[in-house]
Each structure stands twice: as structure tokens, then as C-alpha cells.
Design a protein around this nucleic acid. Structure first.
Lengths: 230, 230
DNA sequence: GGTTATGGTGACAATCCTGTGACGAAACCT
DNA sequence: AGGTTTCGTCACAGGATTGTCACCATAACC
């Protein structure tokens, strides 16, 4: 996975440092400035993968920066997330209207912000998240929701697709049923743990429907993993 | 899976006990104190995997503890989740600014808290879920639950895997059967001591299944150790 | 050498874990 | 509404894993 470039336009030094700290822990390279003008320059020159834009900035308002970024061809498609101190509806609408991809209101938890950033990246820059994930003779096209194996198309239900996708995002890694529940159904879903088994079986059936080696390995007392060896 | 160490700073005894109960069911080792000062000490000495920090503490406020943890190099990267009694806007901002990784506002469901803890751990400490341990020509991939020797894949039961992992985490060290029982089966398991012998034998069989030197040395009247010499 | 302590081994029954087919409910499309 | 797909759950069977034991082998000690 490549390191992701993040441009942070924030004028509160404490907040800037805090966010830098969190994102650097997340494998981001962070460039930061409190100045709107400088931010526009950096966005054009360094072509970051995503911009975090505070509502209040020196010189220019965040909203104005956003508007100008969108107007410039080089930066028009840059994913932008706006940070604002108050979740006022009016502001929110105006923020989205100017073309931000998402909108996070302070106070937010770092976890939440990071999740939103990653979500936007995945949506807007699938290349960064892997438009087509591959493993062995398997191919998963995230954009078109298609799975191919050795060329032939494979059909499966949505849940199986999500599971497979999760496996492909962490190839080879073993996931416990609990963890799969978290990742695929969501951490607050109240689902019987053994349900995972059944979907794994359906996924296996789908994957093997046109022959080929077993791709999902059972790790007894631990979980399941994608695995082409042996 | 390794047991995770959790440091709980909480001054309400009832809440502390409740959380302890929940987390111990989730394979956490819980250390708890109502004192902020003592918490700082424990964080530095026991290097827990994550800290749960109540807003109100004896002596120091939770927020001050958080700030100090971040200032100390040894604890600067510790995942911290703050527990707060009311989701007051002001408090939440202040907490965020001091660098907690996530926030949970009371009242919360224990399940939610556990999910958040696991989410933070996964993000901040992937090492907890995956690393490759090596010794001589042996390779144990904790994330993939796979063991290789001289390239070839080796299969073994879960118990043997745990024993081997324990050895690899302390290479060369001699472990008595009692100690292995503690580490692998848990300190409260009522298991015949000689059972360790049998599993050591099974582990040896697995490791030698594709040839190679004996890797487990018997230390008479003391225990077993991983050892590539001779 | 004989005796005692300690470790190795094979067998076995109990238990745990996973695979699987079936089924009703829910969601989804026309 | 009707028909189809997908979902979540269950119960059961088969197989893998486990813990224990009895017995044999080896090492230490006098």
C-alpha cells in the first residue's frame, strides 16, 4: 500500500498538531499550513490524495478555498473533507454545495475522522484503495461488483461479496468469525456467530463453481483466511 | 491470540467492576486503579496495550492524565479511549485536543465499548494481530496462523501452535511444564501436568515432519526450550 | 549394577469444531 | 401481488483435537 498524502489546512496550532500526530500514525504524509493562499498553492503543487479543510482559515475562509480548488482544473477532483466547529445545517449544506466530499463537525473523535477520510478515499480514488483486487487467479472489481476467476465470471450474493472483498484487502490473513462479523455486518450487528460459517460455505461454493483450487482455508479454532498455497 | 493488557483508570468501583467483568470475558487482562498518579505509573511500567480513561479521577483529571501520557515518550503512542459522563460539546473538544484516540460517552453499552476498543487496537496496534516470528529455519506467521520450515508449510493443532508461538516469543528460554500450562492453557486451567509432554511430542512430530534438526530441547527436571544448537 | 526419577510414546474415549442441508423470514425485483 | 433471491438460524454428522493413562526408555544417582 502506498503512503497517502494529506494536505491539512488548519489554523489552530493545537488542533493541527493533534491531527498530524494521528494521521502520521496512520501512514499518511501530512503537509499543513494555516494559510488559505498557501494551501491553494500546495494543493496544486503537491497534488495530495486528500485535503482536510478547516472552516476557519487565515486570509480565506475554508469555503472559499474549497470553491477555488474546484474551479482549478488541476485540483477540481481532489477529495475534500471539511471540518467545522458547529454542525449547523445551513453551514453543512453550503459546505456540500461548494463541493466538499464529506463534512465532519467538531467535536469528532479521531477514529471517526480517520474512518471518514478512508471512506472518501476509497470512493473517490479507488486506485488508492485498489480498483481491482487480485489474488491468485481471482479478480474482484470493486467498481462493478464483479468477481472473475481464471477469466470466467462468478456470481455470488452481496454478503459473500463483502466477505471476499474483506479477504482480498488483507490477503492471507486469518480472520476470526467475530472479526468477520465486525467487518462485514458491522460491529453492532446482532448476528449468530455460526452464520459466518454458512456464508463462508456459500462463498466457497461460488468460488469453486467453475473448478479450481480451494481458496479459503479453515483455521481450526481461529477462523478463515484466503490462501492459495498447498 | 495473545492476551491483551488493558489499563482501566476509573474511580467508580461499581463501573470498574462491571467493565473488568466484561473485558476479562473478552480475553483482556485488566489492571485497574482509581488514582491518576498510580495510573501514570502503571502505564509506564506495565506498558498495556490500551488505556481506558475515565473523565473523573482521584487527584488528577482524566484529561490531565491523557496529556501527560502523550508527553512521555514511553507512553506517547498508547491507544487511549476516554470515558465521559456527559457528551458535552466543550468537554469532548478538550478531550480530543489532548489526544485520546476515541471517546465513549456514558451511558454506553459494554458491547459498544468493547467494539470501540477492538477497533482502536486493530488500527493502532496491528502488531497485536500480526507479525512473523523467526527462529533458525522456522517461521511462524501469527496473522496467517501458518508455520513454515525451510520453506515448506507445516500443519499442527491449535494447542501445538500456541506452544510454538510461546517459544518463539521467548527464543531459547526454558519453560517448565507449569509455566507452559499457564501460558498456553491459562493459569486457571485444571490440566494434568504430563499433558504438556504429549503436546510437546505432537509439536515435535509436526516440526520434524519434513526433516530437519530437532528444535525442541528437553531440559531434564526443568522443562523444554526452543534450541537450534547441536 | 541396581534403583529411582524423569521423559517418550501409542492408544483411546470424550469433547470440540466445522461442514452441510433444510427451512422460514425478509428483502428484492418486477 | 407474485415470484425470486438472499439471509439468518438450526440440528445433525463426521472428523479433528484433546487430555489422560499405562507402559516403555533413558538418565541420574548411590
Amino acid at each position: 500500500m502506498p503512503r497517502k498524502q494529506l494536505l491539512l489546512l488548519e489554523d489552530d496550532p493545537a488542533m493541527a498538531q493533534l491531527l498530524r500526530w494521528h494521521f502520521e500514525r496512520e501512514e499518511f504524509d501530512v503537509t499543513q499550513t494555516p494559510s488559505g493562499e498557501e494551501g491553494l498553492m500546495l494543493a496544486a503543487e503537491e497534488s495530495p490524495d486528500i485535503v482536510l479543510l478547516d472552516w476557519m482559515l487565515e486570509e480565506l475562509s475554508g469555503i472559499e478555498v474549497c470553491r477555488r480548488l474546484r474551479r482549478n482544473a488541476d485540483t477540481a477532483n481532489l477529495p475534500i473533507i471539511m471540518l467545522t466547529a458547529r454542525g449547523e445545517e445551513a453551514d453543512r449544506v453550503r459546505g456540500l454545495e461548494t463541493g466538499a466530499d464529506d463534512y465532519v463537525t467538531k467535536p469528532f473523535s479521531p477514529l471517526e475522522l480517520i474512518a471518514r477520510v478512508n471512506a472518501v478515499l476509497r470512493r473517490v480514488r479507488p486506485a488508492l484503495a485498489g480498483a481491482t483486487l487480485r489474488y491468485a487467479d481471482l479478480e474482484l472489481d470493486t467498481a462493478n461488483h464483479k468477481v472473475r476467476r481464471a477469466g470466467g465470471s462468478i456470481v455470488m450474493g452481496p454478503t459473500e461479496f463483502k466477505i471476499l472483498r474483506h479477504f482480498l484487502e488483507h490477503p492471507g490473513r486469518v480472520f476470526s468469525r467475530e472479526r468477520l462479523l465486525d467487518a462485514v455486518w458491522g460491529s453492532d450487528a446482532e448476528i449468530e456467530i455460526r452464520t459466518v460459517d454458512v456464508h463462508i460455505r456459500r462463498l466457497r461454493q461460488a468460488l469453486n463453481s467453475r473448478g479450481g483450487k480451494e481458496l479459503i482455508r479453515t483455521v481450526r479454532a481461529a477462523g478463515y483466511a484466503l490462501d492459495a498455497e498447498d
